[in-house]
Design a protein around this nucleic acid. Structure first.
Lengths: 140, 140
DNA sequence: TTACCTGCAAAGTCTTTGCACTCTT
DNA sequence: AAGAGTGCAAAGACTTTGCAGGTAA
């Protein structure tokens, strides 16, 4: 299973690094299509998966909506806007020993955890009363 | 928006309470179909959503696989087996002030968080060398 | 009677897979 | 050349929606 260097793979990696906004696979696809209309959605999905395996990018599994991809290698947390579905980074020390609090894991061998904060982003904030409609409908 | 008492709704609630195993919508559907083959999948989905709204059950959003539904009302955590996708409860004090650790939330108004542990369940454990195939293929 | 609820079918969203072709190596 | 990677179309898993008819209150 030797990995080959392809333009498509480089495009996907560049897109995730440039977008910096936790893009979904489709957002990466749209971004690439602007300059390279021939690249297929399938290829974007496949390269995102490969880049996750190699550790070049990170998958952020968002309950209730499409997976997002993150250019930051180190562990950190995210907030998801419950209104528009947008995801942002959160500044908080990453808890590495979370499983130490577990008293009974029902025989499971714990290997890690996923955590995502829920919230309302500045654009959707209910304090902004004169606001217009959110960018997109809630995804979860 | 008055809620009516229907047999279908009662069946869904009973199923989640009886199964006690964080069933997916489809598992609830299958369970009900054994005794009531006329109930539709759509209705199961709709009643699960309604029961979540009323707080009778809880939705456990599992990254990478179908949503699961929980009969326990109080906050607690789950482990997901990374091999077979099964979900179990974990005994651990629920952290209610998780967001206090946040230094910068990028303007988001934090309303809560979701956390799920990852692990390997006893059935899939790699220590059991003479084991047979896992029940189902990995879901994430 | 009212309008919520149901069941069916269809659509929708996100992602994966089969297959033949095209490149990298 | 090999065979990993690509693109297309189709399928797949999970969930929602539109609509006509049913039913609780």
């Amino acid at each position: 299973m030797i990995r080959r260097k392809t333009i498509q793979c480089a495009l996907v990696l560049d897109a995730v690094n440039e977008l910096k906004s936790h893009p979904t696979a489709d957002e990466v696809y749209d971004f690439i299509r602007k300059k390279h209309p021939a690249v297929s959605r399938t290829t974007v999905y496949r390269n995102l998966a490969r880049l996750c395996e190699t550790g070049d990018i990170r998958k952020v599994e968002v309950p209730g909506s499409a997976d997002r991809f993150d250019h930051l290698p180190k562990g950190h947390y995210h907030v998801k806007c419950t209104v528009c579905g947008r995801v942002a980074d959160v500044d908080m020390d990453y808890i590495t020993d979370m499983e130490n609090g577990i008293k009974n894991s029902r025989g499971y061998e714990i290997t890690g955890y996923e955590m995502i904060f829920k919230g309302v982003c500045p654009d959707c904030g209910y304090r902004r009363c004169g606001r217009t409609e959110p960018k997109k409908k809630p995804t979860a």
